[in-house]
Structures are given as structure tokens and as C-alpha cells.
């Protein structure tokens, strides 16, 4: 079954441009799907429409087969959403915030309390349950948003930049938690600016540019289309670059070179050529990861 099916979805903001210009998108149940795009591309608009925070201009959207125009309540029951910006009441306690959300889904307070204990413990917030949300750190607030979204055990979790502004350690912890959710059957749709996040976590990806999907495939297939990779090399000395014709070497300083390696070249063959010129590579690292490269390539088209 498809977790999400979107047909010719359009959105025009009042006095604004077309945010979505006719999106078609299918996300299968159990998928870990990424929506990628620059700021203002339309990612959050899609999530807003699916969760009925925004009205669509036209088009159809189905959540686990439920038409959001006709069966919105059933569709909403399937979805847990973690918005981009903190949107809980800063004067309420952590426990009240998650239990209130459960109550809106018809879960009685006592049962919500039991569920809150499980979710808050999993996300390391149980000790803070009686703290007002305003007193939490940024990372804790992010986790509170995830906890709130999971209170009614949704089949589909929409994560709108869930790790924005989160430190590296916490970001990895959040990844692990989300990966476990996905393994246990929850379909995940993620929007993020961290392309590494997509490469590490997601099976499929759609790239949106100015309200249109410009690529939609598995992460693996899309990465295979990346034809070249730029490396930054630390070397013992910078050679005369014109002598090494096969590679386009770009000296940065006396010990750093930048080189673009296409599908016909390799780092090892470059190393061999450099050694013939008495240049030794001390360190080599990709300038961008492959996902960054893919993303930039697609946006340039």
C-alpha cells in the first residue's frame, strides 16, 4: 500500500508565487523517504497540506488510501508530524504537552500517561517531564517535538528538518531512533538540509526545485549518476599542474590541491601520476559528499 499518493498537487499562496506547480509523488508504506530542496522549494508546503495546516489550491492527496478531501480524520490518524519550528506551548510541562496531544487523538489521560512514559524515556526526556518546555535545551525541544508526534503511534511520521540546530552527538542519536522506528514499520518522510542525513538514512528521495520535482528515485540510483567528485588533497609539495594532463588540478596553497575526478579517473591513478612527479599525497578527502554533489548538479540544471 502507498503511504502517500499525491496527484498534481498545486499551491499558490495569497499574493505570492506558485509554491507547488503540480507535484506527483508516491511514497510506499515502510519507506524512509527524503524530500530535498533549497529553502522555499515547497517541501514544507507539501507537509503542511498533508497535515491540513495549509489549504491546497488543487490536486489530490491520499494518506494510506484516505483522501484528505473526504476522509481527513482518518488520514490525520495515520500521521505524526514534527514541524520545522518549535510550536508547543512554552508555559506547559513536557508531560502535559505530550498527553494533551494524545488527548486530541482520543487517548484518555491515564493511558496517555503510560504511553508518555515509554516515549519520553526512549527520547531521554522522562526526567524532564515536569519541567516547563521553555526551560529545555534546543536538542531537548527537538526531541519533545518527536515525542509529541509519536503519542498516537502513527503509521507515517513526517519530519520537517528534525535535526536542524542539533549538535552532532544528538543528531546521531536522533538518527538511530528514527531508523529504529522505520525498522519497526513506521513510514518516514524527512525533509532536511543535511544531505549526509539523506545518504545515511533514506531509501528513496525526491528533489524539489521551485515547486516541481526534478528527480525522484532511490538514493543509490541517484548517487550512481554523480559523474565526478571533487577531492581536496594535502601533498608534500605542489607540482607543476600543467604536466599532469589527465586531471584538472587546482592548487589552493603550497601544500593543498583540489582535483575533480570523473568516471574515467580514480584517486589511485592520480596518486601514481603524482608520485612520478615526486609528489606524495599525505591526505585526501572529498570536498563535498556525493549527495551534496548530486544535489548541486541537479539544482544547476
Amino acid at each position: 500500500m502507498n503511504a502517500i499518493e499525491i496527484k498534481n498537487l498545486k499551491k499558490k499562496y495569497k499574493n505570492g508565487p506558485w509554491a507547488l506547480k503540480g507535484i506527483d509523488l508516491v511514497v510506499e508504506e515502510g519507506d524512509f523517504f527524503a524530500l530535498l530542496g533549497a529553502n522555499g522549494a515547497g517541501k514544507t508546503t507539501i507537509i503542511g497540506i498533508l497535515t491540513s495546516v495549509l489549504n491546497k489550491t488543487s490536486g489530490k492527496a491520499y494518506v494510506f488510501g484516505h483522501d484528505i478531501d473526504k476522509e481527513l480524520d482518518q488520514a490525520k490518524r495515520m500521521i505524526g508530524v514534527v514541524p520545522q519550528e518549535f510550536n508547543f506551548n512554552i508555559f506547559e510541562t513536557v508531560f502535559d504537552i505530550v498527553c494533551t496531544q494524545a488527548g486530541y487523538f482520543g487517548i484518555p489521560w491515564a493511558k496517555a500517561g503510560e504511553r508518555a512514559e515509554i516515549v519520553l524515556k526512549q527520547l531521554g526526556l522522562w526526567e524532564k517531564r515536569n519541567a516547563k518546555s521553555m526551560s529545555l535545551s534546543g536538542g531537548m525541544k527537538r526531541r519533545l517535538m518527536i515525542a509529541r508526534a509519536l503519542m498516537h503511534e502513527p503509521k507515517l511520521l513526517l519530519l520537517d528538518e528534525p535535526t536542524a540546530g542539533v549538535d552532532v552527538e544528538l543528531r546521531y542519536e536522533t538518527w538511530e531512533y528514527i531508523k529504529d522506528l522505520n525498522k519497526n514499520g513506521t513510514t518516514i518522510i524527512l525533509t532536511t538540509h543535511y544531505l549526509e542525513e539523506v545518504e545515511q538514512l533514506c531509501k528513496n528521495v525526491a528533489i524539489i526545485k521551485e515547486g516541481e520535482i526534478i528527480a525522484n528515485d532511490s538514493v543509490r540510483n541517484l548517487l550512481n549518476t554523480v559523474e565526478s567528485q571533487t577531492y581536496v588533497l594535502t601533498v608534500n609539495r605542489v607540482p607543476n599542474c600543467e604536466k599532469i594532463s589527465k586531471y584538472n588540478l587546482n592548487p589552493i596553497d603550497d601544500s593543498t590541491l583540489e582535483v575533480e575526478i570523473g568516471i574515467n579517473g580514480s584517486l589511485s591513478s592520480l596518486a601514481q601520476e603524482l608520485s612520478l612527479n615526486d609528489v606524495e599525497i599525505m591526505d585526501a578527502r572529498p570536498k563535498n559528499n556525493r549527495m551534496d554533489q548530486l544535489f548541486l548538479n541537479l539544482l544547476k540544471k
Binding site: T51, Q74, R77, I79, P83, N87, F88, N89, Y104, F105
Partner: peptide, 15 residues
């Protein structure tokens, strides 16, 4: 206040 802090969205996303 709910609109301003956007926690009215808690209600909007629920059935």
C-alpha cells in the same frame, strides 16, 4: 496565544 506560538497546529493536525 495558541496562534502566536503556533501550538494551534496541535489541534489542526489531530482529528
Amino acid at each position: 496565544g495558541s496562534k502566536f506560538q503556533r501550538n494551534v497546529e496541535e489541534l489542526m493536525v489531530s482529528p
